[in-house]
């Protein structure tokens, strides 16, 4: 049987100079829709009435502190964990209802999910056999992730980065329209991270739906078009990265340097900002604009040596949004 919906094959070159072949298919809407998804364990609401939508043709970052329920959510989406209530569908169907699911959805869940004593290419051939894909797909997928030289080496000899690449190769075997990755950047070196970013962006540009969970926020800022932020199993914020960042305008941090920090702190107290002393003697003020701080200092006759506004990045927004909701549950 041939791969479905493979119209043409394009060849790209990855940063490492490895020839990469990606199946290009006509764009179709295969949205991921999560509705009121809930998972209760004995003493824990791992996922609590979570709803969000992941659009096609975009990279969506799935963010949350450790233990926020990201992995559980992805596993419910893939029919590995049974939800207590709620639904998760891909292109309108539950994973269980998909005919030949790995031709629709590719998933990378753990880096170490292969038998230690099996070679990389054999690991992929096992999957090909089960899915009724031709054996050659294993070689093609290895070439896609640049693992061809290590094809006949055993999995236990792989580095963490190679394991991640093998996981991505396995996910790409069925040339899926939807790709779900759980912390794929774990263990990748900077070059590997860049390679993966380019690959995922290229795949999204072909109209595929890409959902990536991560706690590497700076990486997400460069990769994701949309973000879904969760904490303690609940949705905190969802939307395009720019929108989420923009909505946090008030959260801009300002560096202030003054010879009299105590007096400045008193002068700003009425505005209830969050003030953190920095190691170099400056203060980090959150919750006030630069102009407001300058004005308050001027009114109270506090001498200022530095007043610098810093643009909010995803990390700050994330920390602010999930503050108090994170931690060990």
């Amino acid at each position: 049987m041939d791969r479905p919906r493979s119209a043409t094959l394009i060849t790209r070159t990855s940063p490492k100079g490895v020839s990469v072949t990606v199946g290009q298919t006509s764009p179709g809407s295969e949205e991921i829709v999560v509705r009121n998804l809930t998972k209760h364990y004995k003493q824990l609401r791992a996922v609590d009435d979570l709803s969000f939508t992941v659009r096609s043709g975009r990279v969506t970052g799935f963010l949350g502190p450790n233990g926020a329920g990201k992995t559980t959510t992805l596993r419910m989406l893939l029919n590995l964990v049974t939800p207590t209530s709620g639904t998760a569908t891909i292109g309108g169907q539950r994973y269980l209802e998909l005919d030949q699911p790995i031709r629709h959805v590719g998933a990378v869940l753990e880096a170490s999910s292969a038998h230690r004593g099996r070679t990389g290419v054999n690991h992929l051939r096992v999957i090909c056999a089960a899915a009724g894909l031709p054996r050659e797909r294993a070689d093609e997928a290895l070439a896609l992730v640049g693992l061809t030289p290590a094809a006949k080496r055993k999995f236990k000899g792989y580095s963490l980065g190679m394991k991640q690449r093998l996981g991505i190769a396995a996910a790409m075997l069925g040339d899926p329209r939807v790709l779900i990755l759980d912390e794929p950047a774990n263990g990748l070196d900077p070059e590997g991270i860049r390679w993966m970013r380019d690959l995922l962006k290229a795949l999204a540009a072909e109209g595929r739906t890409i959902l990536v969970s991560s706690h590497l926020l700076s990486e997400m800022q460069q990769l994701a078009d949309d973000v879904v932020i969760v904490a303690a199993g609940k949705l905190v914020r969802q939307g395009p990265v720019d929108e989420v960042l923009g909505s946090m305008g008030a959260a801009v941090q300002v560096r202030v340097r003054t010879p009299d920090p105590a007096k400045l702190t008193t002068a700003l107290a009425a505005f209830q900002p969050s003030i953190t002393p920095l190691p170099d003697g400056a203060l980090l003020v959150t919750g006030m604009e630069t102009a407001a701080i300058g004005h308050a200092a001027f009114t109270a006759s506090v001498e200022l040596h530095e007043l610098t506004g810093e643009r909010a990045d995803l990390e700050q927004v994330f920390l602010q949004l999930t503050a108090g909701k994170a931690g060990i549950r």
């Binding site: 893939l78 029919n79 753990e110 999910s113 396995a170």
Partner: peptide, 14 residues
């Protein structure tokens, strides 16, 4: 033991 159950059941959710 080798955490391949995930892959196995992704390929065949039944």
């Amino acid at each position: 033991f080798h955490q391949t159950a995930t892959t196995t059941f992704l390929v065949s959710p039944h």
